Amino acid sequence: MKNIVLFGPPGAGKGTQAEVLKNKYGLIHISTGDVFRFNIKNKTDLGMLAKSYMDNGDLVPDQVTIDMLKAEVNNNPGAKGFIFDGFPRTESQAMSLDEFLKEKNTSISGMVALEVPENLLVERLLNRGKTSGRSDDQDESKIKNRFNEYESKTAVLKEYYEKQGKYYGVDGVGTISEITSKLEKVIDSL
Results as ranks from 00 to 15, higher is better:
Glu123Gln: 15
Asp62Trp: 05
Asn76Gln: 14
Ser31Val: 11
Gly129Thr: 10
Asp67Gly: 15
Phe84Asn: 02
Pro88Asp: 08
Thr131Ala: 12
Gly110Asn: 05
Thr32Pro: 08
Asp55Phe: 06
Asn42Tyr: 02
Ser92Asn: 13
Ala50Cys: 06
Asn75Cys: 02
Asn119Asp: 15
Asn23Gly: 13
Gly33Arg: 07
Asn127Ser: 15
Asn56Ala: 14
Leu126Glu: 03
Asn76Phe: 04
Asp58Gln: 09
Glu91Asp: 12
Asn39Met: 10
Glu123Asp: 15
Ile66Arg: 08
Thr65Lys: 10
Ser96Asp: 14
Met48Phe: 00
Leu126Gly: 06
Val116Ala: 05
Ser96Asn: 11
Asp137Phe: 04
Glu115Tyr: 00
Val64Asn: 01
Thr44Lys: 06
Ala79Asp: 05
Gly78Met: 10
Phe87Val: 09
Met68His: 03
Thr90Lys: 11
Pro61Val: 07
Arg134Asn: 08
Leu101Trp: 05
Lys80Cys: 06
Phe87His: 01
Ser107Met: 07
Lys102Trp: 04
Val112Leu: 08
Leu114Trp: 03
Pro88Asn: 05
Ala50Asp: 01
Gly133Thr: 08
Glu118Ser: 09
Phe38Ala: 14
Val35Gln: 04
Gly81Asn: 13
Leu59Thr: 09
Ser92Lys: 15
Asn74Leu: 11
Ser109Phe: 06
Thr32Ala: 05
Arg134Leu: 13
Gln93Pro: 00
Ala71Lys: 14
Glu72Ile: 03
Lys43Gln: 12
Ser107Asp: 11
Ile66Phe: 02
Thr44Leu: 12
Leu114Lys: 10
Ser109Pro: 05
Met48Leu: 15
Glu118Val: 14
Lys70Thr: 07
Thr106His: 07
Gly133Ser: 10
Ser109Val: 10
Lys80Trp: 02
Leu126Phe: 06
Thr90Pro: 09
Asp58Leu: 12
Ala79Trp: 00
Glu123Asn: 15
Lys70Asn: 04
Arg37Thr: 06
Asn119Met: 08
Leu46Gln: 11
Leu59Gly: 00
Asn42Leu: 05
Ala94Tyr: 02
Asn127Gln: 13
